[in-house]
Design a protein around this nucleic acid. Structure first.
Lengths: 206, 206
DNA sequence: GTTTTAATTAATAGCTCTATTAATTTTGCG
DNA sequence: CGCAAAATTAATAGAGCTATTAATTAAAAC
């Protein structure tokens, strides 16, 4: 019986690091612990990535782009504005549900280490601006048509973002405090998804 | 010329620790740094509070209660339900605006150190349950009257919480990314306050 | 004014972490 | 095989952090 040997240690380090960073953030995760969980020597982490910082950045950037691009794809111009927005909200919601720890990582790192915002600016702002511009013109067109009330794009985006993100950000705490069953939890989440769409669409009405 | 001597060093340690914990979280704040900023010996921090953990807990509990109780006071039964809710939302909003870093501290510590939820359970759940129960009966009464659509209390609270908290949680990041002027910022905040009330009240309509 | 108590400091033990270096093992290849 | 490159490890320097202890200074009490 042969022990299953690492097909690719570098990949394992990356995956383990990703998991730990997402769970505990940058400062609470040590290269020592990453190595221990991978089952390799701690120096190996530095062999592949030189510094903890670089290892983190690789993951952070990956997560950033992963977290924006699906939103662009879901923007379907062949249906009504309301339908289009609904799809966008749901895509955003599902994206966070599939990666519930990412918002925590973002907030944690961008708040405690604001310099990271800068590296993000060049990386992600491009995509963000595209998404923003797309919605912006779209929204203003509808406002001119009078189908929705006058509002700023940033307000709409903030609302979507707030409602979708906070649920998953707070869920671990809520789970700990209230003690849901597994199905109660899925019901709650599904409910919220529907709720969020309703809330936002209602908010747009003239 | 005499150097202004600490009237109360213990108090200064507490205040400095509070500021640093709120800025950077528990793990990123060292007793060494606290002492340096206070201008005293590092051992003094431990002399007064024994451990960093105990120092943190003192602050954490204080912030927790401070963050819940004002919500109960603003619950004014002499006006209409809608008006009452509006006041509650605004009180919540103002509370966070006055302590914009507290949500970050909560999320950060409750997510990375879930055991803290337990100490919170006994401390704050009492107050929370009171607030929740109050709104719960109130809300269900209105639902029976048919003045608002059927919905669960937790959904209403999650909506309020999401909209109010995320703004201030994300503001430092947004500020860094978008580069607002001081008045643009206050305008944005005031707008959001109004928006949040509108959004939530609309969401309740039958 | 001396004694007791409280506040403050210096010094340090013990730990953990990051990063590097040099040595060793494994792998790929001609 | 034999050798070069890559992967892996052991060892360790160097730094920072928490917490404690013993010594020193300031304040209070009698």
């Amino acid at each position: 019986m042969k022990i299953e040997r690492n097909t690719d240690t570098e990949q394992m380090i990356l995956e383990t690091a990703e998991r730990l960073f997402l769970e505990k953030g940058f400062s609470m995760t040590s290269t020592t612990e990453i190595a221990k969980q991978v089952g390799c020597n701690q120096a190996l982490v530095h062999y592949y990535f030189r510094t903890k910082e670089k290892l983190f950045e690789a993951i952070f950037i990956k997560k950033t782009t992963m977290f924006v691009s699906p939103l662009l794809q879901s923007y379907d111009l062949s249906v009504s504005f309301e339908e289009r927005l609904k799809k966008l909200i749901e895509a955003h919601f599902d994206l966070i549900r599939a990666n519930p720890n990412v918002p925590f990582l973002f907030f944690n790192e961008l708040l405690t280490n604001p310099s990271r915002v800068n590296s993000l600016k060049e990386q992600a702002t491009g995509i963000y601006r595209m998404a923003l511009a797309k919605i912006d013109t779209d929204l203003n067109l509808e406002i001119q048509k009078g189908t929705i009330r006058p509002m700023r794009t940033i307000d709409l985006l903030l609302t979507i973002f707030s409602l979708n993100v906070t649920l998953f950000l707070g869920l671990p705490i809520l789970k700990n405090a209230v003690d849901f069953s597994e199905e109660e939890l899925t019901t709650l989440i599904e409910n919220r998804k529907r709720e969020n769409v309703i809330i936002i669409l209602r908010a747009l009405k003239p």
